[in-house]
Design a protein around this nucleic acid. Structure first.
Length: 644
RNA sequence: GCCCACAUAGCUCAGGCGGUAGAGCACUUCCUUGGUAAGGAAGAGGUCAUGAGUUCAAGUCUCAUUGUGGGCUCCA
């Protein structure tokens, strides 16, 4: 038969293995790099016979994304074999390849610890060196059940029973046998670079009602250099850790014994946060939002009415005041409803866009708290838009424009995910269709691409999630835009239409940065602590060479502060090198050195935080430079920055 | 919440087999006035997370509590 391989047509005899078919078609060097293949798109082992109707065979190379996944999955098998050898009686469960590596979950008499990793790794090295081939066997489910029951692998038996197909495949490599869809790499020696990274507990099937298993994480690559790069990337992420930087830069702290999961903002961090908040308020006012604020504590009855008491009680804090039960707000929407209801609204009044930097409390489980990224008290840049149905799409377009401008301002790339109606949901099909189409239409109008996440919407309406990518390629979800059909109903919100009748407004919940705490955490990691000049707490610091320049430096500082800049003077009795080092470590954008020469010339010597030296500048020039630097990011969006 | 690891000075960390606590940085004082990433000296600073237990004796061993870190399906 004629088969296309890498764009060329070859005559492949029937009954020939994929390995032999490819060997004849590829150069020796290329062939050595092949770990599996796809025949007419179906992934197969190299040992498989080329299927009769095959028209194309695509080699899967070790360094392709698919190849790396196979290597990782195979590494998981190798790890399981090593663990079985070292810890007799261990039961294996599942071990997939994941984005950054692989893991395998084990059930053993004791949990594994990081101290076990070294021994497991050494055992794996032996298996890799032995180059055991992976061999595939197909069998019926009953045969597989008997096989795994015979081995005492009860978890595997459970998995086999759950598989809908009639037959399953089993892979052997060395002494290890595992249920596996495949394909696999030809033999264990193809795992050329791997490392075990950590251990963790993990529930069987991710359900906390099930038994806790012992998970071992590792990663593997096609070659040692790629592994080294990956480990370097892990180090880089550590270097950018906002918890570490937050302490080094003295932005914020936690007092675990006083308020776990709640932030203490130190002066520098609070300054940064305040600049961000002020900017957000102004920007929202420019875009037709109104600033509002509701109370922290609301009577329990209102949470019952909103549905939070039924659906969200676990995450709420309650207290009793004068025999009345109160709930601390976990969301701002209820108050915004009440503000809407304070007047009878006309169709002419709509849309109303209510913006609140709302402080909310949510009782997150203790184990999920994580620096600023997961806290129990946080501030949302929250808004609720109440509009007529015919205004919905235009409103969403406005929100997306704001997302685009804000993400552009910080230099984040992002992608858009639209989630549609889930099985368990309320509202008419008509409402859902209209709202979902409005979301899709708005994203299309904005000229942005999106993906659809079928059935992942909230029970009360469809939503748009925006996932941003930071400077080192990690993805974060910040913004969310959700249409809500329930709350306007529950609170009986109305407006009087042109026809004189009462109508139900549509509600949109939206948060762009999400939580300010979380956003500042992400920003810190994104910029590795070197914040853009417009938002950095200290924009410039004057350093005196000796105390003879102290008066000049303090005068210069006052002048720059009066010009609206955030400037400090370091007049301590320390050597210049020492002061430079400190300012540099604090990632202050402009370091202004003042010695006798500068005093004489009436200026300062400018050093940037990247170490570059700009030489002597007048104070007016410095002020202009800093202002221009502040404006720079705003040129990308339709926004401006003011120094008031 | 659950599993593992961890909790010692403001910060980063040492403290063999149980015998009354140590460094660097930061801080205070003094000397030093030094031109772009750490000048020198002295001093002060700790109920070893909290509470029990074992022991003649606990930072060290055991248990509990609180908190922190890594995780808790990316479905063979």
């Amino acid at each position: 038969m004629n088969v296309t391989i890498e764009g060329q047509v070859f005559d492949v005899q029937s009954g020939v293995s994929c390995r032999d078919a490819l060997k004849g078609a590829l150069s020796g060097k290329k062939f050595k790099n092949v770990v599996a293949c796809r025949c007419n798109g179906t992934p197969l082992d190299l040992t498989a016979t080329v299927p009769a109707d095959t028209t194309t065979i695509e080699p899967v190379f070790a360094d392709s994304p698919e190849g790396i996944e196979l290597i990782r999955h195979s590494a998981a098998h190798i790890m399981a074999e090593a663990v079985q050898k070292l810890f007799p009686g261990v039961k294996v469960t599942i071990g997939p390849a994941i984005d950054s590596g692989f893991y395998y979950d084990f059930d053993y008499e004791r949990p594994f610890s990081v101290d076990d990793l070294e021994a497991i790794e050494a055992e794996m090295q032996k298996i890799v060196a032995a180059a055991h081939p992976f061999t595939r066997t197909e069998m019926t489910k009953d045969e597989a059940v008997a096989l795994f029951e015979g081995m005492g692998e009860t978890y595997k038996v459970e998995i086999v029973r759950d598989i809908p197909a009639d037959t399953v495949s089993v892979y052997r490599s060395g002494d290890f046998v595992d249920l596996c869809r495949g394909p696999h790499i030809p033999d264990t020696s193809f795992v050329k670079a791997f490392k075990l990274l950590s251990v963790a507990g993990a529930y069987w099937r991710g359900d906390e009602k099930n038994r806790m298993l012992s998970r071992v994480y590792g990663t593997a690559f096609a070659d040692p250099k790629a592994l080294k790069d990956h480990l370097h990337q892990i180090e880089e992420a550590k270097r950018r850790d906002h918890r570490k930087l937050g302490q080094q830069l003295d932005l914020f702290a936690f007092h675990e014994d006083v308020a776990p999961g709640m932030v203490y903002w130190h002066p520098k961090g609070m300054l940064l946060r305040t600049i961000l908040e002020d900017f957000l308020r102004k920007e929202h006012l420019k875009r037709g939002y109104e600033l509002v604020q509701g109370p922290q504590l609301l009577r329990r009855e209102v949470w019952e009415k909103s549905g939070h008491y039924d659906n969200y009680r676990e995450n709420m804090y309650f207290t009793v005041i004068d025999d009345n039960a109160y709930g601390v707000k976990p969301m701002n929407c209820v108050s915004h409803m009440l503000i809407y209801k304070s007047h009878l609204r006309s169709y002419r009044d709509l849309p109303r866009r209510m913006f609140e930097l709302g402080v909310v409390h949510r009782h997150e489980k203790s184990g999920v708290l994580h620096g600023l990224l997961r806290v129990r008290q946080f501030t949302q840049d929250d808004a609720h838009i109440l509009c007529r149905p015919d205004q919905l799409e235009a409103e969403i377009i406005g929100v997306i424009a704001l997302v685009r401008d804000l993400m552009g301002l910080f230099g984040f790339d992002y992608r858009i995910v639209i989630s549609t109606r889930p099985e368990k949901s309320i509202g008419s099909d008509e409402d859902w269709d209209r709202a979902t189409n409005a979301l899709i239409g708005a994203v299309a109008t904005a000229g942005l691409s999106y993906t659809i996440n079928e059935g992942d919407g909230a029970f009360y309406g469809p939503k748009i999630d925006i996932k941003v990518t930071d400077a080192i390629g990690r993805e974060w979800q910040l913004s969310t835009i959700q249409v809500d059909f329930t709350l306007p109903d529950r609170f009986d919100l109305v407006y009087i239409g042109q026809d004189g009748e009462r109508h139900r407004p549509v509600m949109v919940h939206r948060a762009i940065l999400g939580s300010l705490e979380r956003f500042i955490g992400v920003l810190t990691e994104h910029f590795a602590g070197a914040f853009p000049t417009w938002i950095v707490p200290v924009q410039a610091r004057l350093l005196t060479v000796t105390d003879a320049q102290n008066d000049f430096a303090m005068g210069a500082r006052d002048q720059l502060v009066a010009a609206g800049l955030r400037v400090e003077a370091d007049t301590r009795n320390e050597k210049l090198g020492y002061k430079v080092r400190e300012a540099q470590l604090e990632k202050i954008p402009y370091i202004l050195v003042v010695g006798d020469k500068e005093v004489e010339a009436g200026g300062v010597n400018v050093r940037l935080r990247n170490g570059e030296n700009l030489g002597l500048k007048t104070l007016a020039e410095v002020a202009e430079m800093i202002r221009a630097d502040c404006q720079e990011p705003f040129k990308r969006g339709g926004m401006s920055y003011s120094f008031s």
